[in-house]
Write a protein that binds this DNA or RNA. Structure first.
Lengths: 203, 203
DNA sequence: GGTTAAGTTGACCCTATGGTCAAGTTAACT
DNA sequence: AGTTAACTTGACCATAGGGTCAACTTAACC
């Protein structure tokens, strides 16, 4: 769960400038990161570390040495996987003036991200709460939906009995279905997104 | 995967009258069934067989002896768990004359069953396709939704672009969310059921 | 090119689970 | 009450995965 040596929190991001990695170690870090990104994309954040190590051409012990375990590895790559895109989606939605369009844009883009990036569902579910970055994404997303729904209520463009928790629940269900079932055709998925959006409108 | 002795298919239901169980074996079968029903209710169809054996006061080898493995055990109890209720729900919906009410009744009852019985989601997903009964339930449910949706389309009470596959996808998502997240309050769950039903209506 | 701290790794331990079987136990029949 | 086929089970093997460490390798510096 934590690195064998060094003070608590001494994983990846904590590489102090005074202790640069040796050349071979730096090379391995890069290879592990790349392999982790590819593996997390394809199989989710619960991909066995041994598989990632094999893809990177190192032993799994090296992942523990460099990243301290799964949580550290996730922290090191989650930005490339979903954090950056997630923040872009939130910014985009915030810049849409019309309250309904703002919600619709956010929901649509978020579902699109879920479709393209199964690992995002893991982030949503905080499957690995030890990862600080994951927790940050999840909590930012919750804040975002809360304020979007509030705005929609105030403007009368979302039914009053719809809550942010309802949206979260729907997203989780969608993400899990996407994981378990054969991936639906894009047009079917988009149609379901429209159904969902329609169900938010006032009666 | 199959019993060690006897011809293929010699599991549980295949107990021929000419070969009645010995008293101790019959007692064990009853205890295992009861333990399996309770365990499947609480933890789903993937409950470790060892846990069920322990609850029944037998060794796990006895489950293999009597039921041939997980699939046989599921076959032996799925009727008590969900098959009977599922058929009741289907019959009830078929007896509602109004096409919209028929769909609404079916969807509502099915979601209610999902809420009360997490194992039903496993049935829906056919997590254990080796179990004949599970497969039968899943396929009956699919036939049912197909014909209900068709009837709704013909009567103009369901939006034309909504398909039976959409309903299945939604049910799976709901079931998985129910499994992963803390169980929502009944009133929240029912509200979400209403949202979903609203989203089926023609625009 | 020698020294050494940094780095890597094969081999290991651990848990959980599915699955099997030889050997012992017991119900049932005579 | 003796015999035996039915039955049960502890002990076993296998797989998958997380996690650790002593011993080996090597980059970096003199």
């Amino acid at each position: 769960m934590s690195p064998r040596t060094g003070p608590p929190g001494d994983r990846e991001a904590a590489q102090v400038p005074g202790a640069p990695l040796r050349a071979d170690a730096a090379r391995n870090v890069a290879q592990i990161r790349a392999a982790a990104i590819a593996a997390f994309r394809g199989r989710g954040l619960d991909t066995p570390l041994e598989a990632i190590a094999a893809a990177a051409g190192v032993s799994k012990a090296t992942i523990y040495n460099r990243f301290g375990g799964r949580a550290g590895l996730i922290d090191a790559v989650i930005g490339k996987l979903v954090a950056a895109e997630m923040h872009a989606i939130m910014d985009k939605a915030l810049q849409v003036a019309d309250p309904w369009q703002s919600v619709a844009t956010y929901v649509t883009d978020r579902r699109d991200l879920q479709y393209r990036e199964p690992a995002f569902t893991d982030a949503l579910l905080m499957t690995y709460p030890e990862s600080g970055q994951l927790a940050a994404i999840a909590s930012a997303a919750i804040d975002m939906t809360t304020s979007l729904v509030q705005r929609g209520h105030d403007a009368g463009v979302i039914r009053q009995d719809f809550t942010a928790a309802d949206l979260y629940y729907a997203d989780v269900g969608n993400g899990l279905a996407l994981r378990k079932l054969p991936r639906p055709a894009r047009q079917d998925y988009d149609r379901r997104t429209r159904f969902f959006l329609d169900s938010l409108r006032p009666r």
